[in-house]
């Protein structure tokens, strides 16, 4: 496991993210369905922030706004003071489904970002390095259908990391994996984040995952989502699931989500 100190040696790698009074709504058959209401979050460079909330509360919508895939109906989002208006490879998303392109080999999938930016020819080594990073160099010529779920998600992670993002946006990336693969990949995510120092935004509905991974856990209310609590998690890595401090936080969080009766 990479030491925490190493993360501090690259403080510039991550970008600051400011979400200011953002509101958003969907049009569904003419009626307006509000999904986000007056959300303000300020993320420091290099922070690992988990967004936690009930299913369908609008967390993923917020991620799409941060990625620049959609424009907010109200408020502004800024990356290092610059307003976010469209997608940019400095903010890369890893979705719940790996969404690898089935017609491309693993290597070509990872190369996608560099190819799209027209810099692949001179930067091929970055693709190799990204594949190394997720431990899939030997699968470079495989096609996505030949990979297991965990491997496919690793490729998706490599495809994101090859762009050296300043903000890594994770939309329940481990949600569909089996519990063993999940635990392994959680540890890998923390190690990558510590090594690279990017700012990370993780949407999850698993309180334990949020607490094991993040510096900061933001709890959302039901739709339309607003910030219900902003909790700092000051524990060194690697964290242990049995840590009583985390267990206590988890009880608190589940209480905020209205699930305390079950614990």
């Amino acid at each position: 496991m990479v030491a925490l100190a190493e993360a501090i040696t690259h403080p510039a790698a991550g970008a600051a993210l400011d979400i200011e009074q953002v509101g958003h709504a969907f049009d569904i058959d003419g009626t307006e369905l509000p999904v986000l209401s007056d959300v303000s979050i300020s993320v420091e460079p290099g922070e690992f922030v988990a967004l936690l909330g009930p299913s369908g509360c609008g967390k993923s919508t917020l991620l799409r706004l941060v990625a620049g895939l959609d424009r907010p109906k109200a408020g502004t989002l800024r990356e290092d003071e610059a307003r976010i208006t469209r997608p940019h490879p400095s903010r890369v998303v890893v979705f719940q489904d790996p969404t690898l392109f089935p017609w491309r080999s693993v290597w070509d999938n990872v190369a996608l970002g560099l190819e799209a930016q027209g810099i692949l020819k001179s930067q091929r080594h970055r693709v190799d390095a990204a594949l190394d990073l997720v431990g899939l160099s030997s699968f470079r010529n495989a096609y996505p259908h030949q990979l297991s779920g965990g491997m496919a998600q690793r490729v998706a992670l490599a495809r994101a990391l090859v762009n050296d993002p300043k903000i890594l946006i994770l939309d329940e990336p481990l949600g569909k994996l089996d519990s063993l693969t999940r635990i392994t990949m959680q540890a890998e995510l923390v190690a990558l984040w510590q090594r690279k120092g990017f700012t990370t935004l993780l949407v999850t509905h698993d309180a334990e995952e949020a607490l094991v991974l993040a510096n900061r856990v933001i709890v959302f209310s039901d739709r339309p989502a607003r910030v219900k609590a902003d909790i700092r998690v000051d524990r060194p890595y690697p964290r242990h699931r049995g840590d009583p401090y985390l267990a206590d936080l988890r009880r608190q969080i589940l209480g905020l989500l209205g699930l305390d009766a079950t614990w």
Binding site: P89, A116, N163
Partner: peptide, 19 residues
């Protein structure tokens, strides 16, 4: 989802069509 992935990776419209 494929277009979303490509767009966040910096793809221009011509890339979205051709690739």
């Amino acid at each position: 989802a494929y277009y979303d992935v490509a767009r966040t990776l910096g793809a221009k419209p011509s890339f979205l069509v051709l690739k």
